[in-house]
């Protein structure tokens, strides 16, 4: 009845990937989100659109471009070769980079919405009290937008766990390196091992439900009820 060793490996790798990606995205997504929430620049529209692109693009488009760009004839591939890093497709870090693109909107948009919901007033009040921008960020923005940050982390994590199409295209199915849980399920199905597919699928279903349950319970308790994804 239990999961096989390679199922466990796949789950472990999936968690490692999702954790790494979420951590990096929280660091690079936060300044982008705050900038998008506050700016009046004409670039707001284009950057918003770029960030949201992975929501509407088929993963095959992203996977295809990444495979070409990171390949030996692609600009990214030539750069990584020059830096002595080798080629990124079929490696864990290749998947990390692909997932950064793929999960970006799921991290940026909740933070952006939460920061927009705070409005100008608390920040202006902080400024009149001589608070530095960094102080304001840590003592005003983070506490007030906390549910947004939590939503962002949960969604970024869960969405990376659910990634399939891009990994299929650039992963190469290497155990402990690129063979994540969704690929393992696909393998089970292709090999007509339907009971193995059922077991791992049930784990994924349970995980996704719990992640979303957490998300919605945080949102209920949070200040702003306006967090939405996709706009």
């Amino acid at each position: 009845m239990g999961l096989t060793d390679s199922d466990i490996d796949a789950i472990w790798l999936t968690l490692k990937l999702a954790f790494t990606v979420t951590l990096i995205l929280m660091v690079i997504g936060t300044p982008i989100a705050i900038w998008l929430a506050r700016t009046k620049s004409w670039l707001r529209g284009p950057i918003n659109a770029l960030v949201a692109l992975p929501l509407v693009l088929p993963p095959t488009v992203l996977g295809f471009y990444l495979l070409i760009a990171m390949g030996p004839n692609g600009p990214v591939g030539q750069l990584t070769e020059k830096l002595g890093l080798g080629l990124l497709p079929f490696t864990f870090w290749g998947l990390v980079i692909a997932s950064l693109f793929y999960s970006l909107p799921f991290v940026v948009q909740p933070i952006q919405n939460a920061v927009e919901a705070i409005g100008k007033k608390p920040l202006e009040a902080a400024a009149t009290l001589n608070s530095s921008p960094l102080d304001t960020f840590f003592h005003v923005v983070i506490p007030l937008a906390k549910p947004g940050f939590i939503s962002a982390a949960i969604l970024g994590f869960a969405h990376t766990v659910g990634e399939f199409g891009i990994v299929l295209m650039i992963g190469g199915n290497i155990p402990m390196e690129t063979k994540v849980a969704s690929i393992q399920i696909y393998d089970h199905v292709e090999a007509l091992e339907y009971s193995g597919a059922h077991r791992l699928s049930a784990v994924m279903l349970g995980f996704s439900f719990i992640a979303l349950l957490l998300l919605y319970s945080f949102q209920k308790r949070g200040l702003a009820s306006k967090f939405r994804i996709g706009g």
Partner: peptide
């Protein structure tokens, strides 16, 4: 050194694009 395609077509695609 293996990379596995889901089908022989994908193995070909990995090789033709030079990634393998």
């Amino acid at each position: 050194k293996w990379v596995m395609g889901e089908s022989i077509s994908q193995a070909f695609q990995f090789t033709a694009s030079g990634n393998a």
